[in-house]
Amino acid sequence: MIAIIDYKAGNLGSVARAINHLGFECRITHNAKELLGADRVIFPGVGSAGQAMQDLKRMDLDQAIYDLYESGKPFLGICLGTQIILEESEENQTACLGLLPGTVKRFPMPLLSDGGKYLKVPHMGWNQVKLKRLHPVFKDVAPESEFYFVHSYFPAPKGVETIIGTTEHGITFTSVLGKRSLIAVQFHPEKSGPPGLTILKNFCLWEV
């Protein structure tokens, strides 16, 4: 069974609908025991880092997430779920889970393109991911594929070993990161059309 971690952060239903559409069963849950019993786990989220960390702690889910990471089960972070696996976020100056070393930073303002045009924040819309190395979750995803992003903060992992893919928006930021059984994406695969669905399907079948 695939568990989707429910900590009241955003629309978990769209992740569940995409997983079901692909023919996999999933359960949205905030029960730590149920999460630890799942075969694989998705950690989604929209909203602010401060609120998310408060909710995770209040619901005693922070320890469950450490345990899940240690267990080596496939673990997928999405958007805010990706950011708060790092050590700390500039958003509300929040101490985060620290599964991977690094921080979460805000896009600098003003943000300019190569051609000197002003870019907008939030980074909202479709953009590409340049893979730094191959990963089973990106199998059969064409390199020119685009994914749906919506965020004002971005993951800034420490060191290069956890960086899997990067994206350009005025700056080059890490949009895919991971280590062992953990893979985390800044975009929304559940809203990224067929290539996003391919990523979710690969995750559902991933044998670490």
Binding site: G125, N127, E168
Partner: peptide, 8 residues
């Protein structure tokens, strides 16, 4: 770089 969106 972000793509421009076409929205019906």
């Amino acid at each position: 770089m972000l793509s421009k969106r076409i929205i019906p």
